[in-house]
Amino acid sequence: MSALTLVRQLGEVVLAVAIAPLFMGWIAQCRAWLQNRTAPPLTQPYRMLRKLFHKDAALAADASPLFRTAPYVLFGTMVLAAAIIPSVATDLPFARAADAIALIGLFATARVFMALAAMDIGTAFGSLGARREMMIGFLAEPAFLMVLFNAFLLYGSTALPSLVDANATRRFFIDPSVIFAEIAFIMVLLAENARIPIDNPATHLELTMIHEAMVLEYSARHLALIEWAADLKLFNYACIGFALFLPWGIAVHGADGGGALLLASAVLLVKLAFAGAALALIESLSAKLRIFRAPEYLAMAFLLAVLGLLVHLLLGANIHA
């Protein structure tokens, strides 16, 4: 690998880490507008992080080392995921370390660490949150996997760079199975990122919390890392979504000079702006489900993805043949 690809890789990671809170701020702003509230400034997440990093960390007396390590592990996995997912260019040295299935495993690692850390102090809400988070996780994973199977059938690869290269350069048409997969993916994205209708990121009711319940015992820099990791996770999911369904504009392999990279970055920002607005719209239009309804919601996502697969197999469409 040349120095240039390494620089490109590093640049992409830095970009992801830098603008992930901005994406979160943009969604919050859109939500506020849609709900007729005065919006917080776009930079609100950064101010929050800055405040948290400068506070003293209050740690429960019998917190184990696992509790203190978990935020770093969480942040580490999300940064690694950002290095693997092609968001601006596809010729990335790190992207070969994992295909999309391994990426699911990476997210699962983060989830398990978060759940274990939540159980460490032994408070009622922490373990409640851990249990719920793991429940959502094991229901969402099969649905996500079915979406990836669909992509494999279409583009013959689960390696994201090859997949995006194939996807971005093909002749434009819409395979009917993609629509099913897309809806399923958005449903999974909402569930995995603790958004409405599964979880409400802005809630203050402990009994209905999932993600927030797990981080109740965290403060200061640990909380900041967890929040940042959550921002990155949403950013990563959005980028996976772009890679699977909206790849146009990305600097594909072989056509990734300086100008193409600049253009791709600009296109990425535009895509994120639209995706954020769409997410805010979905969240404003739907109500939070009861936790017992979550399995039904995720089963529906799963069935949609399977339906997509069956549609593909029945119609016999095969692009790369």
């Binding site: 003293d56 209050a58 740690l59 019998d62 592990v73 942040f75 690694l80 790190f94 109740l216 015992e217």
Partner: peptide, 28 residues
């Protein structure tokens, strides 16, 4: 990758912010 990111994050947090910890009872 994970170990490197964790190490860098740890050092950066210590350099730019601080590593102070206050032990208290669980908040719950």
């Amino acid at each position: 990758g994970i170990v490197a990111v964790i190490a860098v994050t740890f050092v950066v947090v210590r350099l730019l912010a601080h590593g102070r910890v206050r032990r208290t009872a669980a908040w719950d």
